[in-house]
Design a protein around this nucleic acid. Structure first.
Length: 684
RNA sequence: GCGCCCGUAGCUCAGGGGAUAGAGCGUCUGCCUUCUAAGCAGAGGGUCGCGGGUUCGAAUCCUGCCGGGCGCGCCA
């Protein structure tokens, strides 16, 4: 357990024990951070709460607790302040020692298979290039995965691929009827090598896009939408195409396979640029072919979860009742259609079957095959309908499932958990989490910059929605390219002496840092109004600001090694966490006292709070907390860096102490960025 | 009509019962011969949408308005 978190825990435990022994009370104790350092490091307003119950003045109660509490390990003293706050002051030197000790042994807690977590994210329809909205989904999901992993829980990452849906059908229809391409034509287009396999920008200019298959489909999809809107009779064409794909027959089905697989590969490539990886690609076509729905249907009918009314507006459909209050006489009860009167299943129906599978409650399983491998050899698996490979890891059977889906689908996600609950799977229903977030929209200004025409009404709005259907939005790779060339220009200006091989990865790390931080700094339920000005910024509250703080810290170690090549008081950049000087506890305590010591202490305390910040982020499923923390710590470090010149410090003991402090802070900054999926370059 | 979310500095957002409400951007003024100025320091900027209520204490909880967003299909 990280150090600040541990101290919180000890303080809380001591308080609860005292409350129980003295007053016979068992109540939750809120621990907070006092507003100023003079008031200590931990505080609780518990005396106010007790004042009501005990009918005594809060200050008097606080006094009683403070004197009766007894010693707490790591806490120097407890004081009463204000109208009745209890403030704890930590033993600073001990905190520092403990913090470094704990930071060194970072082996995550033994992962227990019983607590397996599935996180599903990305899940882009495989019929067009990924856009900025998809990036928010993937980055949030991926960061949550990192947080779960950090907490020591086994996580499996799934990406749901709707390869038999309307969106793919539309592009199939487009190739066949608008483009009049043959199967072979499309196969050739789809097989065309990507111009930038590793995402390196060509001469700083975004790729023209004309050749890229995912970009080509992006445009075609928009044209198909127009084509279908122009004459509603054409919808029959779509219905036919969709039916053929679902049944797995004809050229339509084969085309759907070619298109969805090629697009999926480009999505994986795009996400790989951002450090986002998957364990399993779960394909809709396999859910259909393995008849998952039939198994779910049997469960739902046999337990009476869905019924088929003979009359009324739902006559002939299988419906699930929603809401517990029976509807008034005459009014239709609130219900959701699961099977249409035509006998076909709705989207939610399939989703219920899939959700049951995730918990191991369906009674059926997929076959599995290796889809591709990452450079390090780890496999991305895909579901299959037959011919599975042997020696497959166990998929599904999770205890908790997080579905990263935007907030517009809240209603449908509720229907899915309601179905699990109605089936009697209470625990699964309770652990089916809709990891909800708001969409990414464009500011009207940004939309105009992109050349989209806006209605007078849209211009007045705070933001306008992106629409893959209309081809309206910022493509993920275009944005990444833009960021990389902007970062590259900065790097070139600063490090003209370095070779291409040195500069390119730095620019890439900065671009990713800027993008991931930008998408993570907003809390989930805030609509991001996207604007190039903010997204392309490398200053202020941004990823590069945090990266820069780390680079500065590393420079200190680098220069230090040049100054004194032999003694190596602290190893440089590679492992800043393991600074081990022979500082005595007394020296540390002395340097952490007094006005200047307060300054160091504040920085140390903040750096030691990473664990509790990460825990808060995990508990509330809010990655933005980690982003905020990383920025605050970087900010505190920047101030410290500016005020204290370490290399020129004359006092060797103090110098060793400062080096140790910088090492610890840098290690926590690196760890915080790693949680966000951001790397710190060696220089920038 | 019903449900969910939001309204905090000029702009974009944190804070979601507790001590003097914060940050970034933008504006203005300083600081590079010193570990990288992608930085630091300072100034200016607030009826926390409005009205009631609960509480020792409300930006935070309840309620009613006002304004904005998103859902609510035998689409996915």
């Amino acid at each position: 357990m990280p150090v600040y978190h541990l101290m919180e825990d000890r303080f809380r435990t001591a308080l609860r024990r005292f409350l129980g022994e003295r007053y016979g009370l068992d109540l939750p104790v809120a621990i907070e951070r006092p507003p100023r350092l003079e008031l200590g490091e931990l505080a609780t307003p518990i005396a106010f709460e007790l004042a009501r119950r005990l009918r005594r003045a809060p200050r008097q109660i606080a006094q009683e607790i403070a004197s009766g509490l007894g010693p707490i390990e790591g806490v120097a003293r407890v004081e009463v302040a204000g109208a009745g706050y209890l403030n704890a002051f930590l033993d600073r030197a001990q905190f520092f020692e403990l913090a470094q000790e704990l930071a060194r042994g970072t082996a995550p807690a033994a992962a227990s298979a019983a607590s397996k977590v599935i996180v599903e994210h990305t899940s882009i329809n495989p019929n067009k290039a990924a856009h900025i909205g998809h990036l928010r989904n993937a980055v949030l999901g991926d960061t949550f995965v990192r947080l779960e992993h950090f907490a020591g829980r086994p996580v499996q990452v799934q990406n749901y691929i709707d390869d038999t849906g309307v969106q793919v059908a539309d592009v199939v229809l487009g190739f066949l009827h608008l483009e009049r391409k043959s199967l072979e034509d499309v196969r050739r287009l789809a097989a065309e090598p990507q111009p930038r396999p590793n995402g390196a920008p060509e001469s700083g200019k975004p790729d023209s896009g004309a050749r890229r298959f995912d970009y080509l489909c992006w445009d075609l999809y928009a044209r198909v939408t127009e084509f279908l809107e122009a004459d509603p009779a054409r919808l029959e064409l779509r219905a036919q195409t969709l039916r053929a794909i679902e049944e797995g027959v004809g050229a339509e089905s084969e085309l759907a396979g070619i298109i969805s697989t090629a697009i999926l590969r480009s999505h994986l490539r795009t996400m790989d640029r951002l450090g986002i990886r998957y364990d399993l690609l779960a394909r809709e076509s396999d859910i259909l072919r393995l008849h998952f729905w039939d198994a779910a249907f049997r469960q739902m009918t046999s337990r009476g979860v869905i019924t088929r009314p003979a009359t009324g507006k739902y006559a002939g459909c299988w419906i699930m009742a929603l809401g517990d209050a029976p509807a008034e006489e005459g009014a239709e009860a609130e219900a959701k259609v699961i099977v249409r009167s035509s006998g076909t299943v709705t989207y939610v129906g399939k989703d219920i079957a899939y959700q049951l599978w995730k918990f191991g409650l369906l009674g059926l399983d997929f076959h599995y095959r290796t889809f591709s491998r990452y450079p390090d050899g780890s496999a991305v698996w895909t579901t299959a309908s037959e011919d599975g490979e042997p020696n497959v890891p166990e998929f599904g059977r999770a205890r908790e499932v997080y579905n990263v889906i935007d907030s517009r689908q809240a209603y449908l996600q509720n229907v899915v958990s309601a179905a699990l609950r109605a089936l009697g799977f209470e625990a699964a229903a309770a652990h089916s989490v809709h990891f909800s977030y708001e969409m990414v929209a464009l500011t009207p200004r940004c939309a105009r910059e992109l050349g989209y025409e806006l209605s007078a009404e849209d211009t007045q709005r705070p933001y306008v929605e992106v629409s893959g259907r209309r081809g309206f939005g910022v493509k993920a790779d275009d944005l990444l390219d833009k960021l990389e060339s902007a970062a590259r220009a900065e790097v070139d200006a600063r490090h003209p002496e370095d070779s291409e091989a040195v500069r390119a990865p730095i620019a890439r790390a900065i671009a990713i840092g800027a993008l991931r931080y930008f998408l993570l700094k907003y809390t989930r339920n805030t609509v991001i109004a996207f604007d190039f000005h903010d997204a392309l910024s490398f200053e202020g509250e941004t990823g590069p600001y945090v990266q820069y703080a780390i680079v500065r810290a590393r420079n200190i170690f680098r220069k230090l090694a040049e100054q004194e090549p032999n003694p190596a008081p602290a190893p440089p950049a590679a492992a800043p966490g393991q600074s081990i000087s022979a500082l005595s506890a007394e020296s540390r305590a002395k340097l952490l006292a007094g006005p200047e010591g307060d300054e160091f202490w504040e920085l140390l305390l903040l750096a030691g709070s990473l664990g509790s910040q990460a825990a808060a982020a995990t508990a509330s499923q809010e990655p933005a907390f980690v982003a905020k923390f990383a920025f605050q710590l970087a900010q505190s470090f920047s101030v410290f860096y500016h005020r204290h010149h370490i290399l020129s410090e004359a006092d060797p003991v103090k110098k060793a102490f400062l080096v140790e402090l910088v090492g610890f802070v840098a290690s926590q900054l690196v760890a915080a960025l790693a949680l966000l999926g951001i790397e710190a370059p060696e220089k920038m």
